[in-house]
Nucleic acid binder design. Structure first.
Length: 585
DNA sequence: CATGAAATAT
DNA sequence: CATATTTCAT
């Protein structure tokens, strides 16, 4: 039933459909669809809704009509899609919803109908339950696929699709909401075909991007009547979702490929099920669900992070991350499919959140649970964070000693503060009006190996600015202003063409590190400057308030007098003893 | 129970 | 082999 050819066909169809749709947006079909306003003013709704019925079998058609009319729908019967289409295009009649019978004979025509009348919520009915037909119909925009005979309940409820359409027609965020569905589809196809060409997947992905109607059965106003689409508790419509991080956990599809026939065999009835998306409240559970189900398929879980309102107003990167909707695939048998999440993928975005959290907390307070809180990434567990933190610290540890050695040589050999836990905040060169750094400064950052290094992702942190090449597995990347998207990353103006001090000092090391790369001259943009200022402020503040800590490179030690003066201004009259820095652990 | 480090798994 | 998860000691 599913074969690669079908996949290709489906994908191509979708492409056609989409482009068609885009092009024809303006000359849209006659206004068949209610607007939300119309609906709101509708008396006795759904009475009077006009139903376009395409049914090749006259008897069935009549029967259906009678039922529908009993329910106060107004029914127009067409024997085939051509008649229906001409009626639509003549504007001789307008319709709110269509019920279309599809069978093996008329399917191609019906597909055409779906493509053409894509604004009309269309419910498919059929005697056969060929999964590929079902899927294609849905993919082409059908809102529901029902097996004949259709129960009265189902018929009664078709109005819901009208409402759905009306309220979501030009929807702005709907396409976002469909991503998970898209992913589900892709996942399913992948498992169906073993390994589908990624190019094709991309097409599907792109296509579905703009299509709000596609697979609307899984949308936020799911049609309750649909047997095959269990309504997931979607909470995608929470408008508060400002940011989303994604971390996908994928399990190896390999081991499961063999057992993933459930969709077409045992579960011909249903294809997707939208699982609960992480609403801020339901949080981790969405991801945590795991089970032993053996017949589940490859699953990808993306979590959605919702910053509540003003929680992070200043997060300028809020939309920078690779926003994938949270989604999960379940097999259709009601058995929760999969979700054996295997690994958290520490994507650059996710890592950035992590780093931001660590920075925000300060190194001393950076413990997994708090980091987790700050990250606000659903589904991420404390363990995940702890693990990542461990790795993070390890890398730090390798680096910092050298760094400290170089920057704050301790005369007396008292090096107690020169390792990670006691790293002062201002461990990176601050900007100071009176102390500009010659030649500018480049701030290297770590980039997790294997990460796409389009130059965007940075492991850097003001707390952990590496000055030396850490170890072979981590890239060093001079901080590039252009990519100063990580909160708190130091950004400084730099002189074009002159390598920064740092680079000069460590050049030999870089050459031995294969992935090392320089980011040449960079220019500052206003937001980066702003970011830099924030960082600088923070650094200076800290330097002032914690005079007992070593000063960052490039910052002149203030005179004791100045410090005391400043401290008294801030109400700090006592300086902690030198011997014990205010570190907790 | 949470943390951090070591062991183990992928 | 790198990195994520799990286990284990604290």
């Amino acid at each position: 039933m599913f074969d690669p050819k079908f996949l290709m066909h489906l994908v191509l169809s979708l492409s056609c459909f989409r482009s068609q749709k885009c092009c024809k947006k303006e000359d849209a079909m006659p206004a068949m669809v209610c607007t939300a306003d119309e609906l709101l003013g509708w008396k006795d709704f759904p009475k009077g809704l006009k139903v376009l019925l395409i049914e090749s079998d006259a008897c069935s058609a009549v029967e259906m009509r009678l039922k529908l009319e009993e329910m106060d729908y107004i029914v127009s019967i067409f024997c085939n899609e051509n008649e229906a289409l001409s009626a639509i295009s003549n504007k001789s009649e307008c319709f709110h919803v269509a019920i279309v019978e599809v069978n093996t004979q008329n399917s191609s025509g019906i597909f055409k109908f779906l493509e053409t009348a894509n604004d009309l919520p269309t419910i498919m009915i059929s005697d056969n339950n060929c999964i590929s037909t079902m899927m294609k119909c849905i993919a082409l925009g059908a809102v529901e696929f029902l097996q004949k005979p259709v129960s009265d309940d189902k018929l009664q409820n078709i109005w819901q699709h009208v409402v759905h359409k009306a309220f979501n027609a030009g929807g702005k965020d709907v396409s976002e909401a469909l991503k998970p569905v898209k992913e589900s589809l892709i996942s399913m196809l992948q498992l169906q075909f073993g390994n589908a060409e990624t190019g094709k997947q991309a097409s599907v992905e792109a296509e579905q991007e703009n299509n709000q109607d596609l697979l609307s059965g899984c949308d936020k106003y799911p049609a309750p009547s649909t047997p095959q689409l269990k309504q997931g508790e979607r909470s995608l419509d929470d408008g508060d979702c400002q940011d989303q991080a994604n971390f996908s956990m994928e399990q190896d599809s390999a081991e499961q490929d063999g057992e993933c026939k459930s969709v077409e065999t045992t579960c011909g009835n249903s294809i997707f099920e939208c699982t609960a998306l992480g609403s801020p409240a339901s949080g981790e559970d969405a991801v945590k669900e795991e089970h032993e189900s053996t017949n589940c398929c490859r699953t990808e879980i993306n979590t959605t992070t919702c910053y509540e309102g003003k929680d992070r107003p200043s997060n300028k990167t809020s939309n920078a991350a690779g926003l994938n909707r949270s989604s999960a695939v379940r097999d259709t048998c009601g058995i929760k499919a999969s979700k054996k999440r295997s690994k958290v993928d520490w994507t650059p975005e996710l890592h950035k959140k992590f780093v931001q959290a660590v920075e925000q907390l300060g190194i001393d307070q950076a413990i997994p649970s708090r980091i987790l809180e700050l990250m606000k990434v659903e589904g991420l567990t404390r363990h995940n964070v702890a693990s990542h933190l461990q790795k993070y610290r390890m890398h730090r540890r390798h680096i910092l000693p050298k760094e400290n050695e170089r920057r704050w040589p301790h005369p007396g050999g008292s090096a107690q503060r020169n390792y990670y836990p006691h790293k002062p905040v201002m461990a990176f060169p601050p900007y100071h009006p009176n102390h500009t750094i010659p030649g500018g400064q480049v701030y290297p950052a770590w980039i997790p190996p294997g990460t796409y290094t389009g130059g965007i992702h940075i492991w850097g942190s003001p707390y952990y600015p590496g000055w030396q090449v850490p170890n072979e597995s981590w890239y060093w990347k001079p901080y590039s202003v252009t990519h100063a998207d990580a909160w708190g990353c130091p950004v400084m103006p730099q002189t074009v063409g002159s390598y920064p001090q740092f680079a000069q000092q460590t050049a030999p090391d870089f050459q031995t590190t294969k992935e090392m790369q320089y980011t040449g001259s960079t220019l500052l943009n206003p937001s980066d400057l702003h970011a830099a200022e924030e960082v600088i402020d923070q650094v200076v503040k800290e330097a002032i308030s914690k005079p007992w800590l070593p000063l960052p490179l490039g910052l002149k030690p203030p005179s004791t007098e100045c410090v005391l003066n400043e401290l008294s201004k801030q109400g700090i009259s006592k300086i902690p003893p030198h011997t014990n820095a205010p570190n907790i652990r």
